[in-house]
Amino acid sequence: MARVVVDVMLKPEILDPQGQAVQRALPRLGFDGISDVRQGKRFELEVDGPLDEAALARIHDLAESFLANTVIEDFTVRVEEAAEVAEAAK
């Protein structure tokens, strides 16, 4: 089984008030020196069967048509290596 991670972020030119609210809270928590925060979404897809080019292409289509709205958001698709997954599970 393989894990594919899709990260979705608002396009850079679009205002992100949630990220701004987080950023404004930072000095109160004693975190200085962070000038900007943008908040996005991360999807972890557990894929059955071999993760070949065709499977990745299908996931790319899924991300483009459903997980992200490309009118307002950008996305990236990457395969998480087995070692990474095992490390995260510890």
Binding site: L10, I14, Q18, N69, V71
Partner: peptide
């Protein structure tokens, strides 16, 4: 329709 809808700017 063109464009998209997001959360109100005042949250």
């Amino acid at each position: 329709l063109p464009g998209g809808m997001l959360g109100n700017d005042h949250l």
